[in-house]
Each structure stands twice: as structure tokens, then as C-alpha cells.
Design a binder for these strands. Sequence first.
DNA 1: ATTTATATACCTACCGGTAAGTACACCTAT
DNA 2: ATAGGTGTACTTACCGGTAGGTATATAAAT
Lengths: 205, 205
Amino acid sequence: MTEEATAGAQANQAVRERLLAEGLRLFTSKGYAGTTVREIVEAAGVTKPVLYYYFNSKEGIYLELMEGAYTIFGERMRELVGKSGSARDRMEILCLGIFDAFLEFIDVARLIYAIYFGPAQGAPQFEHDQAFDWMLDAVRTVVAEGIASGEFRPGDPADMTWVIIGCLNVCMEEQLCRNDPRINRDDTKRMLALILDGISRGDAK
Amino acid sequence: MTEEATAGAQANQAVRERLLAEGLRLFTSKGYAGTTVREIVEAAGVTKPVLYYYFNSKEGIYLELMEGAYTIFGERMRELVGKSGSARDRMEILCLGIFDAFLEFIDVARLIYAIYFGPAQGAPQFEHDQAFDWMLDAVRTVVAEGIASGEFRPGDPADMTWVIIGCLNVCMEEQLCRNDPRINRDDTKRMLALILDGISRGDAK
DNA sequence: ATTTATATACCTACCGGTAAGTACACCTAT
DNA sequence: ATAGGTGTACTTACCGGTAGGTATATAAAT
């Protein structure tokens, strides 16, 4: 493969990536129906048939963005699961890891949330619950192990799981919905500690 | 006023209410940009200029729906605030009351959430944070009084508030996003109790 | 020469909005 | 009692603009 071939392949990818980046930005800020193909291609600096060349349709680029978003979060979840240590430590690593991933890929996250809560608006169907369910399963696993090991109190693992998820969820949502979020990572850590203090065994303060 | 006049006034309201009801349904399920004036009026059984007659524009009906939604929740919040009893009892009444209001007006709630998380999509600007902020202030007030009275532990009232809000929030969101919510009112009550057990003074179990 | 990537020009269908008209109720003047 | 005027509620037909998508030509890469 010559250097020319590499440059050509890279030019391909550059156009494609530009379209995806602009598509992500615009779908996120305007929604599926509110975003036109014209504005995506104009932002990417190409003409309209180029989008159809690479993605076949408006739906095509949208679905590719969705698949990419879920892939990113799935990989990050896998990295965060399977750590070792006390249940409390692992919970902290897991939740703050999720929070950090959220911030790192906040545009992607915003798109996922927008789809999850937002109206369908003619967008093609996609399995929407996956990212949330991954999170739920991971937290539930750590809770169950904490109860089994005696580190957390006996109780309903589902309740504990949902309280933790609720806390993490509201912290993440705050990052999405405000230019000046009222909750940061340290707040999240403290709030998590408050919950874990409450469900830990040997809590006699 | 004759009976004919009453019937005429009622016919007015019937058309107007039909447009609002169909508008709510469609904006909620399809979003602002994804909903056309044509489908609203068709669903309401009138012609397009009728919508412009009553609401001046597509924006007009949307804004009227949004104002109505916030009015409903604001009134319900006022009813729930100002109850008396222990901080714990009041917190339970407040949170479960919010949850109940949410279920009662779930279409309205769905629209508010869709707007809050969903993309702007060309919809007219509206102050979106109000319902959430009402909730936050109400919970914060009860938390602060619980700490002051010694019922809750000394601690950061903001942390406690947000943990409670996060829990309530995720329970409500679950009602929105699934045909078969995994959390019901009793679950919500139990989870709230788990948190309140954890932050209560005298918790030595 | 062939394949791939891109541009120009165009298509049909649909968008929000509006002008003009109609039906009806009510009021006032004759 | 009747005619004319006014206002409200609604319809039909239409407007200019734009949506997603495509045929064809051209440029670039191999």
C-alpha cells in the first residue's frame, strides 16, 4: 500500500467522520425531525448526495450514530465491571467511573438521553434501554455481593440498587441539562458515600 | 343567557379543548418539529385555519400547552407543601404526593420531561426548569427542618436533598419510559424509607 | 480503463401560514 | 317585521419555501 492509498483512505474517513460528527451535534441539539440533511452536509462541507453515498439515507446516519454511542458506553461499562476490592470501594469505582465516562462522552450521552426521554419524532426504532440496563445490572451485582459478604445490611438488593442508580442518574442528568450544573464529581462522590453509609453494616454513628 | 348561547360557548371550548388534547398527545409522542399542524387539526376534526384562529400559530398552541402543564404541577406542589408532622412523615407525604401527581398527569409529565431532555428542535423557548426546581426546593425545606429539629443527622442538606430527589426522579422516569415500569408506588415508598433510615438520627440498627 | 467519490440540477411531497369566502347569531335602525 | 351591519367560528383554496431523495455528469483514485 503506497502513501497515496493511505492518503485516499484517510480522505474517505475524514469526510465520513465529519458527517458523523456534525450529525451527532445536530441530532443532539435539534432532534431527528428538527435536523435537516442539508444542514448536516453544509456543516460537514460536502454536498447532499455524499451523505446518501456513505449512509444511504437520513435514517442511515442516525442509526450509525446510535450504534456507535451504545458501543462506546458498552465498552466503558465492561472496563468498570470486574474490579476487585470491598463492595463499597467497587461501588465507588463503578459509579464514579460511569460519571466520568458520561462527562467524557457527554455529546453521545446527551443523544442517548434525548432519545430515551424525547419523543420518537419519526426517528427509526432502536433498542433504547441498553445503556441504562447495563448500569443497573452492574450496580445490582455489586450490591448483591456486598450483602452476601456482610458488608452491606441485609435488605432488598433491588431497593438499594435503585437508590444508588437514582442518585447517579440525577447527577448525570444535571450535567446534561444545565450550562452550570449544580452537582459536580465531588458532590456525586459525597452523595454516594451518604447512601453507602446508610446501607453499610456496622453503621452506628 | 339563553340555552343556545351556553351551547355555543361550549362548542367553542370543545373545539379548543380537542385541539389542545390532540396537540398534547402529538407533541409528546412526536416532538415539536415532528408534529405537523395538519395532523393536529385532522385529529381534532377541524381545518387548519381553526388552529390559527384560536392559537395564532403552531408555537401558540405549544406554548399554551406548556403553560398549562406548569400550572397544573405548580398547584399540586403548593398543596403538598405546608403539611405538618415529623420531617420524616412530611417527606413521605411530599414525595409520594409528587409521585401520585406524576401518575395522574402522566401525559403532561411526559411532555415536560421530553422538553427537558429532548432537543430544542425549533420549539419556542420556555422556562423549563421550573417543575424540577419546585420539587427541589420543597424537599430541601423539609430536609433543613429535619436537621434543625434534630430528627435528621447533621450533614450537608444539599446532599440529602439530592439523594432523595434522585431516588424520586428515577422512580418517576421509570413510569415514563416503560410500558411495564419496574418500580411502583410501594417500591418508591420503601426506597425512600431506606434513605430516610440512613439519614435519621438514632439509627443504630 | 475501471472504480470510487463527489457535484449540479432536479424531483415530488409536504411544511407553516394566509386570503377570501360562508354560515350564523346578534344588534340597531327604519 | 325587515334590512343592513357586525362579529365569531369555520371552510376552501392557495402561497412560498423546503424536506428527503435521485439522475446524471464529473473528478479523483487505482
